[in-house]
Nucleic acid binder design. Sequence first.
DNA 1: AAGTGGTCTAGACCACGAT
DNA 2: TCGTGGTCTAGACCACTTG
Lengths: 258, 258
Amino acid sequence: MATQPPSSLSDLSAAAIEASGPAFSPLYQQIKALITRSLQSGEWKPGEAIPSEVDLAARFKVSQGTVRKAIDELAAENLLVRRQGKGTFVATHTEEKVQYRFLRLMPDDGEVGPVERRFIDCRRLRAPADVARALELRSGDAALQIRRVLSFKEQPVVFDDIWLHGGLFKGLTAERLSDYRGPMYALFETEFGVRMIRAEEKLRAVAADATSASLLNVSEGSPLLSVERLSHTYGDKPVEFRRGLYNTAAHFYRNEVS
Amino acid sequence: MATQPPSSLSDLSAAAIEASGPAFSPLYQQIKALITRSLQSGEWKPGEAIPSEVDLAARFKVSQGTVRKAIDELAAENLLVRRQGKGTFVATHTEEKVQYRFLRLMPDDGEVGPVERRFIDCRRLRAPADVARALELRSGDAALQIRRVLSFKEQPVVFDDIWLHGGLFKGLTAERLSDYRGPMYALFETEFGVRMIRAEEKLRAVAADATSASLLNVSEGSPLLSVERLSHTYGDKPVEFRRGLYNTAAHFYRNEVS
DNA sequence: AAGTGGTCTAGACCACGAT
DNA sequence: TCGTGGTCTAGACCACTTG
């Protein structure tokens, strides 16, 4: 049997990718792109199982090993979750086990309790210049601003100032936010079909201003951890920009570096 | 040809691993452990090439694919570096390209300049309780304390208070530190055979005390980013505990979350 | 028992780097 | 040209989950 058809894949949609320039791209990367496209288009929704490796191999006319390698990478990027004996599933923010996956705050005593959320406001307005730049909006385009406080054990710890891409979150109100059970990213996913994939964060130490001091119940000028986050959905499209102020008196931001 | 000898590996050192209990362990994990052992024992030194996949497959009496999967994971953990056409190399802190791999500080303007180091002191003394606990020393065991300041563009930005496992760094002096060109972790690797593999960090915002304020040229009480880092070498053995204070007026700590 | 992902093998060819 | 890692295939059996 002939091994390795020379990266042709002529009669299926991968051809489109292959055709776009002389750049060499491994087959499994093309498969990965096709799977990503199906995720993006909503063919398979968060929480659902995608077709089995054998099925996908047949569909794309490649070997199971090639599909496997594509899925391996998508799983490593947290877009998919493999479960032996059951199947491969689209990752979601709604599962208990991985809730608040992006929140890297830990209590000093290690006891991770429940988090209470209080929304200050939720307004639709024109994006300020810096937000517009981050979200790749034209300055003046609509954006959504949400401000809220997260508390642990009755103590306010996080004050978030959140800016969302206006076009993607039409109809989001303070009420819907308050009514929703679970993390905000789960709501975005369920109600607006926007799934957060990855985020870049910039951390700084800053002094509390009057507003944050009163909301976090610290004195003005107290050191707070500022976390600026730019979150992306499929295709590395930026959709959320937020600035969180963390009171790190009894909590810390954990990170692993290697 | 018979596929998959039933995880026997009877006549080589993997047998030792296999023998230790009824726990199932994939062949490639056993190979991975064997390779890690060779790295740890210094059979292959940082910067050197390890044997080719074919050679390793012959040595361990498994297929190349199995060796490949083991190496894939070690490369993902930054223990090895693959270079197509050349070979697979033991990762090192001495290369220009990946220097200060653990330092996640970035200048706001994006211009990464050279870093100047100034050592305040380097003393051998008994480990305080918290350091002893972190480094798994008996309280009272010898430890090495180093304090230094890092500057970018003439501006002091980082004040580090570093504690090292006493037994592993005999003969380390302020002079050797100052004389050495390059990152401290490169020195540890070259001169003491201690390679930092991964680290856990805890970040907080704190107020500058008198010492750090004067060293970092800020006023007392200014917010500083406190970064507590516990670094590990092979076998997850903790060997360094440090607390860095970062002036984030013109720099930020970057992180990616997914 | 059937279906899924997980492991393992053997062998082929490709892309890259050094010679 | 040769040796290295990188890709791809085809097929086998193992481990886990569900019916």
